[in-house]
Design a protein around this nucleic acid. Structure first.
Lengths: 348, 348
DNA sequence: ATGAAAGCGCTAACAT
DNA sequence: ATGTTAGCGCTTTCAT
């Protein structure tokens, strides 16, 4: 009825009539133990419902916990879900358990979470840095041998391994694809805040592609949004411009949802579209959505593998690993650009 | 350079020239402490990069850890991601940290994960039971006062709170919608294994709707798949039957992806479709996808709230809470049923 | 306002 | 094959 104290090693030992150490030995398959003792101990464990206190064990053993801490911005974003699954697969093979929590992209929550993980002595810390977060406080842990990996975005104030997508090149490829189909006015719908690493990199790729095609950068073609409804509104606004874009590029998967939703709502099939990051239904859209696909599995695997190598003593310089993206052409980028008659011929 | 030992309370105490207990007092804002001592301690903590060992603290204090353990089948499924986010929001307000891991729907991995959580003395355990898992071993923990909640599916062998969607009624509504538009041959694409609780409940809803409309159950219209490609293949097979379905119902979000993908691939717009669980792009499809939407946020909130009530001493009988679904009609269910003459000619 | 000693549950290092 | 002692890093209890 009442919350009775949980049984301890000593309780089991008393039940059987042996010492605590003997029970410990049986449970950890440490030193020898007679078959009879073992059985009695196991029986008592089952009878009492004993569950070893891992915290007490870890504190005595001194080593780190067999746990990997992962901080992501949003549990509900399938991109991070895929990354997390890949990490879990890799570290699971080493007997490590993945524990994850979300920062909601808030530096304070990120700090609180990492502190909790550190206080729990995780073996590995993998963080998707929040905008505005600073990481120099992790320096001592890193020098003390704790592998720290930044994922999707680089950390700030701490030389540590980073695993990122090749955002700039990927975005450039996507934009170039649109330009190749005759589009000179390409809208960019990016996420917020504008200081976000991935956002900046992808916008840089956008500008690079324009430059390569000798198309001037027009600030009014760049829109921002926090979420899908915002992206939807931003799309509507862009298309409402006096001199509107004939093609749109989504800065991430959420922005893509907004763009696609708005084009479907307004029944606009004449706008070419490409998006950064793949969507599960991209192929079923009409036209099917052309994307710059990231490789979340590879990001996760690479992060986990790098961390494990560090755990095994790799003390080489911190690396930044860039995971390539892949342009998947499905059709939405090939909507033809309207005849130039529409606007004044621009010099080139 | 080498992995130097992490500083402990004693190290900080030595640095300042006070006792360990004084440092402890300052850090936990326990007893009194002179302003000067406090500052010195805080300075030393910062200087040494001291991070209290939470495991050591918990072991001494004896209470449970300020942690909630969540076991889900798949980190990359956005449905569970949304549920997890809702749980985190609720328990976070109580200062609890959500830790989650995935069972891959494997009873053994589920057991290993729950054992780890128990060994870490989580305050709350929330589990999406794997198929074939048995939970009577959790009984002693529950009687010892640990809140245990089953999510999405009921547990086996243990009376504990369960939070589930109203699967049966939801599926019935979805099927009834298809039948109302003239469809008498409705295919069901369900996930595997067929023993899965949600799968069984939704199929029961399917059968109930047929019965209410006096349509005989035709086993050949029920297909199964593990994943999206499987669902795609199953869809193709169903449509290839001599007497094919004129409407399809997806048993979950993944199956829906497969059905939609296959219909897009084969350019079949004449098949009516409805799906259990919403998809992010459902509105942008042509026709837009009619769904029986679950409420993952409410599932998560409800699970968390129930758990917290238990933590606060609620000792009432275990409840099963059913979270209603909502039929969202978007058009895909209203494709007209073909005239009976049509499929006679389709003898190829 | 601060400190000393004891102990949380467990295991390392020595016994026997 | 098993038991004893000490101690992990922290907090409780009781001093001072």
């Amino acid at each position: 009825m009442a919350a009775n104290r949980r049984p301890t090693l000593a309780d089991v030992a008393r039940e059987v009539g042996v010492s605590a150490k003997t029970v410990s030995r049986v449970l950890n398959e440490d030193g020898p133990a007679s078959a009879e003792t073992r059985e009695q101990v196991l029986a008592a464990v089952a009878k009492l419902g004993f569950q070893p206190n891992l915290m007490a064990r870890n504190i005595r053993v001194g080593g780190p916990d067999t746990t990997v801490g992962l901080v992501i911005p949003d549990l509900a974003n399938p991109f991070f879900g895929a990354v997390a699954r890949a990490i879990e697969d890799v570290v699971g093979d080493r007997g490590l358990t993945l524990l994850m929590g979300s920062s909601a992209d808030d530096p304070e929550r990120e700090r609180a979470l990492t502190d909790k993980f550190l206080a729990r002595r995780v073996s590995i810390l993998i963080v998707v840095p929040s905008v505005g977060a600073e990481h120099s406080h992790l320096k001592s842990h890193r020098t003390a041998g704790l592998p720290i990996i930044f994922l999707d975005r680089p950390g700030v104030g701490l030389p540590a391994d980073s695993i990122v997508s090749s955002n700039r090149a990927g975005a450039r490829d996507g934009i170039a694809h649109l330009i190749a189909h005759g589009h000179h006015r390409v809208g960019f719908v990016g996420d917020l805040p504008v200081k976000l690493y991935t956002r900046r990199e992808r916008l840089a790729g956008y500008r690079a592609a324009l430059q390569e095609a000798n198309i001037p950068y027009d600030r009014s073609l760049v829109a921002n949004a926090h979420d899908q409804p915002g992206a939807q509104a931003a799309t509507a606004q862009l298309l409402d411009l006096a001199d509107p874009p004939t093609a749109l590029f989504a800065g991430n998967n959420i922005m893509a949802l907004g763009i696609v939703a708005e084009l479907a709502r307004s029944k606009r099939k004449d706008v070419a579209v490409a998006a950064f990051d793949d969507l599960s239904l991209a192929e079923a859209l009409e036209p099917a959505l052309t994307v710059v696909a990231q490789d979340p599995e590879e990001l996760g695997r690479s992060a986990a593998a790098t961390a494990l190598a560090r755990l095994d003593g790799d003390r080489s310089r911190a690396r930044t690993i860039s995971v390539p993206t892949r342009l998947i052409i499905r059709g939405s980028g090939e909507q033809p650009a309207p005849k130039p008659a529409e606007f004044v011929t621009r010099s080139r």
